[in-house]
Design a protein around this nucleic acid. Structure first.
Length: 866
DNA sequence: GCAAGGTC
C-alpha cells in the first residue's frame, strides 16, 4: 500500500500554499477544524498519499493545576515550585482531536511549522497529538525548513527534510514556565497587597511581567525625565544679511552658549565687524536611500505616528487585509525580500490604481530597482500588497493602512532620491557662521512616499572671499525644554532594540499597560503614565531596579538560548533561573513597605474611600462601597473586603438581610442597554462554593447568544446553575437536622438538588423534580425544626398528582411521613436516619464533617466561620 | 483575577 504522509503547517494559509506547490494545484480539500488538502505524489522515491493540514498557532498553553488557582489560600511563593500543566489553548477548536484523527494510518509526519523557536516547539506539540513515533532508524518524523512559501522554496525544503530540533523546543518550554511562574507570583502578591490597602487604585489587577513591566518602565523613565527637568537659559547669535534681495539668517557654529555675558561679548565682536566674509562654499551630492522591505514593527511605528492607529488596531486592520488576501502575512521581522520574490507580478497588480498606477507603469517600463539589502530573519517575507484594492472595498481605516503598505512596497523598488547640499561658511569678528541649501535632482522613491521628501531650500549665489554687510546680529534667548512624553512609535523602537516582546506580542504588551491603567494614550499617540504606573516603577526602582529594567527579558532569553543551543540542560536552567527570581521575590516581599510608602503618598486608604452603603453581617456597621476597579465593599470595623461583580453598579436592596449571614443585600445593576438587575449577598458572593460565580456570570454575559436573563441562562446570585431561578428569600431557610445550621440549596449537585449545611457539611437529598423550596414559617411540633414546602416541576415528577406542594419537616421522619402520606402516601425526605437524631439544638460546628461529599472535605474549600 | 507566545 502506498505510504500515507501527514504534513502540518502553523496556520491554514501555509498549509494551502504547501499543498498547492507540491500538488501543482491538483488537490482536493476537506473542511474541518482546519482544512485538509489531499493529493498523491512521490515521497522518498515511493508513490504516496499526502494530507496537508495545519494547527492555529500553539496547541497548548501552560497553567497551574486547580489547587494553585485560589488566590486566597495559595502563597505566591509556592508557585515557584508548583507543578505546571499543559492544556489545549483553544479547546473548542479541537486541534488535538483533529491531528490525532488525521494521523491515523499515516506512517510519516512532515512538520511545516514556522522556522523559529516557537515553531520548533509547536512541532513537538503536533508530534504529541499525532501519536506518530520515530522508528528505530528514526526516520518517520521530518522537519521542513523554509522561509518562503514560493513554490520553488517549498519544493527545495521538501527535498531537504531534516529532523526537528528538540533543544529549541525545550527552550520555549523553559520560557513558558519561567514567564508563568514569575509573572503570576509577583502579580498575585502585589495585587493582593495593594488592593487590600487602597481604595482608589482603579485597577482590577496590578500585574507584573518580564515584558510588560519594562515596557511601562520606558514610559515612566521618560515621564521622570520630564518632571525632573530643569530648564536652562541659553543664547545664540544669528547674523542677518541681504543677498540678491533675500533676507537670510545665518547659524552660529557654536550653536548656543549658556553664559549671557560671553554671548553678549560675541555679539559685540561680530556687530563691530559690520561685514561677513564668505570663507568657503561646499557642495556635495547626497543620496537618500530607498527603504528596505516593510516589517511589522516598522509598519506599527508608521501606523502610530503617521496614521494615528495604535499597534493593536493596526494589527487588527493588517490581519483583516491579510485574511482577505490584500497583503502578505503581516507578522514578520524580515526587511529583506527572498531571492525568489516576484516583483513583476506584485507590481503588476497595482497597475490600475488611480493614485500610483502611473508610477508603477513607469517602473515596469523603465526597469524597477532591486530593493536594498535588509535583514532576513528567516521567518516571513516583508509585508507587501498581494492584490489590488480600492477605498470602497476596504473602508477608510484599512484603506489608509493598505495605501501605506503599497506606497512603501513601490518605494522599495524605486530609485534613490538624489539632491545636492550646499553649505556656505562665513566669518565675522573671528566667529564662524553658516547656512545650508538643498536642491533635489531626482525625487526617486520620495515621489511615491512624499512624507520622506527632502526639503528644497534655495540659497543665493555666493563667491568665496566675498564680503557682505551685516544687517543685524540677533542675540536669541532660549530655554532648554524637556522632551515630550514617549510616543508609541518611540516605545516600539525601544522594545525592539531591547528585545522586549516579538512582532506579534509588542502590540499586546502596549495594550496591556493601557488596559491595566498604568499609562494613557494622549494626543499624538503619546503615552502618559498614570499615578499607578509611576508609583509602581518608582517602587521597583527603590526595592530592586532589575525588576523593571529591560535586562530582565534579555537575561531570560540568554539563559534559554543555552538550552536551544544544546549547551545546558533544560531542567537545570529553569531551576537556576527560577531560584534567582524566587530570591528576588522574597526580597521584594520583605521590602514591600518601601514601595508602600510611595503608594501611601499617592492613594487613599480603603477606609477613606467610597461611600457608606450596606450593613456588615458581622459587626452590623455600615460598609463602604468602593466603585473604582475592582468594585467592592469594605468594612472598616472588621477590616474585610467583599468583592462585587464587574461591569455594573450597586444599590441597596430593600434593606433586606441575607438569612445566612445577616449581611444586607445589595442590588446589582448590569451595565448595558438591558440593565438587568439581580440581588446578591456580599458575603455569599465571596464564599465558596459560590465564589467564582462572577466568572460564570461573565462567561454567560459574553456568551455567543449575547443575551442575559432567564431565557439566556443568567444564574441567580446564589446558584450557578444556568436555569435556576431561585431567589435568596425562598431558600436557605430551614435548619440543619444535624447542627441547627442553615441549609441552602447545594449548587454543586445541580441539577439534582440537595440541601447543603454550611456548618456541618452534611447534604440532604431532595426528591427528584424538586425545583423550589420555601419556608412555611411553622415549626415541627416534635423536633422544632423548620417545616418547608417543596415545589415540584409537574412534568418531571410522577408523584405530584397535580399537587405541587409537599410539606414536611426536614428532620423528623415521622411527622414528615404522616404529612406527606396524608397527601400522596409517599415519603420524600427519608434519609435512613433514626428518629430524633441530631435533635439537640446546641451548635455543634464541625460535627458531621467527613460525612458530606468529598468536595467539602478539603479544608481549603470550607466556609469561613460565621 | 495572573505571564508571554503562537494564531483567527
Amino acid at each position: 500500500m502506498a505510504p500515507r504522509v501527514l504534513m502540518v503547517a502553523e496556520k491554514p494559509s501555509i498549509a494551502l500554499s504547501i499543498a498547492s506547490a507540491l500538488s501543482g494545484g491538483r488537490m482536493s480539500t476537506r473542511r474541518g477544524s482546519t482544512d485538509v488538502h489531499e493529493f498523491d505524489g512521490m515521497f522518498r522515491g515511493l508513490h504516496a498519499h499526502f494530507k496537508v493540514t495545519s494547527v492555529i498557532g500553539h496547541i497548548f498553553s501552560v497553567d497551574f493545576p486547580p489547587t494553585y488557582q485560589n488566590w486566597e489560600v495559595t502563597d505566591p511563593m509556592d508557585l515557584f515550585q508548583a507543578p505546571i500543566l499543559k492544556s489545549e489553548s483553544n479547546p473548542k477548536a479541537h486541534i488535538r482531536r483533529h491531528l490525532s484523527q488525521e494521523a491515523k494510518g499515516c506512517g510519516y509526519l512532515v512538520l511545516w511549522l514556522d522556522c523559529d523557536r516557537e515553531g520548533e516547539n509547536i512541532c513537538y506539540e503536533v508530534i504529541e497529538c499525532s501519536g506518530i513515533h520515530e522508528n528505530e532508524a528514526g526516520r518517520r518524523i521530518y522537519r521542513a525548513r523554509f522561509s518562503s512559501v514560493a513554490e520553488k522554496d517549498i519544493l527545495k525544503a521538501m527535498d531537504n527534510l531534516v529532523a526537528p530540533n528538540k533543544d529549541e523546543a525545550l527552550a520555549v518550554d523553559a520560557r513558558q514556565e519561567i514567564d508563568l511562574k514569575v509573572g503570576v507570583a509577583f502579580t498575585r502578591f502585589q495585587t493582593r497587597y495593594f488592593q487590600g490597602k487602597y481604595g482608589n487604585l482603579d485597577s482590577r489587577v496590578i500585574s507584573y511581567g518580564p515584558c510588560q513591566t519594562p515596557t511601562l518602565g520606558f514610559c515612566v523613565q521618560r515621564y521622570l525625565q520630564i518632571t525632573t527637568f530643569k530648564p536652562e537659559k541659553f543664547w545664540s547669535l544669528n547674523p542677518y544679511i541681504i543677498k540678491d534681495g533675500y533676507e537670510l539668517r545665518l547659524e552660529w557654529d557654536r550653536n548656543k552658549l549658556f553664559d549671557y555675558d560671553v554671548a553678549m561679548m560675541f555679539q559685540k565682536l561680530v556687530s563691530d565687524d559690520h561685514t561677513l566674509k564668505v570663507t568657503d562654499i561646499l557642495t556635495k551630492e547626497e543620496c537618500k536611500s530607498r527603504p528596505s522591505g516593510l516589517n511589522t514593527v516598522n509598519m506599527l511605528k508608521v501606523a502610530s505616528s503617521a496614521l494615528g492607529f495604535g499597534p493593536q488596531m493596526a494589527m487588527q486592520l493588517a490581519e483583516r487585509l491579510y485574511t482577505q488576501g490584500f497583503i502578505s502575512y503581516p507578522r514578520t521581522e524580515s526587511t529583506a525580500y527572498p531571492s525568489s520574490f516576484d516583483f513583476r507580478s506584485a507590481l503588476g497588480a497595482q497597475l490600475n490604481n488611480p493614485i500610483w498606477g502611473n508610477d508603477v507603469r513607469a517602473l515596469l517600463a523603465d526597469g524597477f530597482h532591486k530593493p536594498r539589502h535588509g535583514l532576513d530573519a528567516g521567518d516571513h517575507p516583508p509585508i507587501t500588497p498581494m492584490r489590488s484594492a480600492t477605498e470602497d472595498m476596504l473602508g477608510d481605516d484599512a484603506w489608509r493602512l493598505y495605501q501605506y503598505i503599497c506606497q512603501h512596497f513601490i518605494g522599495t523598488v524605486s530609485p534613490d532620491c538624489h539632491y545636492t547640499r550646499t553649505r556656505v561658511e562665513f566669518a565675522a569678528g573671528r566667529e564662524l557662521f553658516h547656512c545650508v541649501g538643498q536642491h533635489v535632482t531626482a525625487k526617486g522613491f520620495t515621489s511615491i512616499m512624499p512624507w520622506m521628501a527632502v526639503g528644497e531650500k534655495n540659497l543665493p549665489q555666493f563667491t568665496k572671499g566675498e564680503k557682505i554687510n551685516i544687517l543685524k546680529v540677533d542675540l536669541y534667548e532660549g530655554s532648554t525644554s524637556p522632551p515630550d512624553y514617549l510616543s508609541e512609535s518611540e516605545l516600539i523602537s525601544l522594545m525592539e532594540k531591547n528585545g522586549i516582546g516579538t512582532d506579534a506580542s509588542i502590540p499586546v504588551h502596549i495594550n496591556n499597560i493601557c488596559e491595566r491603567n498604568y499609562v494613557q494614550v494622549s494626543s499624538g499617540r503619546r503615552l502618559v503614565p498614570t499615578a499607578l504606573g509611576t508609583t509602581l516603577i518608582r517602587g521597583y526602582q527603590c526595592i530592586d531596579p532589575d525588576l523593571c529594567l529591560p535586562d530582565i527579558r534579555s537575561f531570560i532569553e540568554q539563559q534559554i538560548t543555552l538550552i536551544a543551543k544544546g549547551k545546558a540542560d533544560h531542567i537545570h536552567v529553569v531551576q537556576h533561573v527560577l531560584q534567582q527570581f524566587k530570591q528576588k521575590y522574597t526580597y521584594f516581599v520583605k521590602k514591600i513597605e518601601n514601595m508602600d510608602a510611595l503608594f501611601e503618598a499617592q492613594f487613599s486608604p480603603l477606609a477613606d474611600s467610597g461611600r457608606l452603603l450596606s450593613k456588615c453581617g458581622k459587626c452590623t456597621r455600615y460598609m463602604k462601597y468602593i466603585s473604582t476597579q475592582p468594585p467592592r465593599l469594605y468594612c472598616a470595623t472588621c477590616e474585610e473586603v467583599y468583592y462585587l461583580p464587574q461591569n455594573g453598579t450597586i444599590k441597596l436592596y430593600k434593606e433586606l438581610a441575607c438569612p445566612l449571614d445577616g449581611f444586607e443585600l445589595v442590588l446589582f445593576l448590569m451595565a448595558g442597554p438591558d440593565g438587568k438587575t439581580f440581588p446578591l449577598c456580599p458575603y455569599c458572593y465571596n464564599s465558596p462554593p459560590f465564589e467564582g460565580i462572577d466568572k460564570l456570570f461573565g462567561a454567560l454575559k459574553l456568551g455567543s447568544s449575547g443575551k442575559i436573563g432567564k431565557g439566556a441562562g443568567m444564574p441567580c446570585f446564589l446558584c450557578p446553575h444556568p436555569t435556576c431561578q431561585h431567589s435568596l428569600i425562598s431558600q436557605g431557610v430551614c435548619a440543619c437536622p444535624e447542627c441547627s445550621g442553615t441549609l441552602v440549596l447545594d449548587p454543586v449537585s445541580a441539577p439534582k438538588w440537595r440541601l447543603y449545611c454550611n456548618i456541618c457539611n452534611c447534604l440532604v437529598s431532595l426528591p427528584q423534580g424538586a425545583h423550589r423550596i420555601s419556608t412555611t414559617g411553622k415549626r415541627c411540633p416534635e423536633c422544632d425544626s423548620t417545616i418547608i414546602e417543596v415545589d415540584f416541576n409537574k412534568r418531571t415528577t410522577p408523584l405530584s398528582n397535580g399537587a405541587t406542594l409537599h410539606v414536611g419537616c426536614i428532620l423528623c421522619d415521622e411527622l414528615l411521613h404522616s404529612l406527606v402520606e396524608m397527601k400522596h402516601g409517599k415519603s420524600f425526605f427519608r434519609r435512613g436516619r433514626g428518629r430524633g437524631r441530631g435533635r439537640g439544638r446546641a451548635s455543634s460546628r464541625g460535627r458531621g464533617r467527613g460525612r458530606g461529599r468529598s468536595k467539602y472535605e478539603d479544608p481549603k474549600m470550607s466556609f469561613r466561620d460565621f
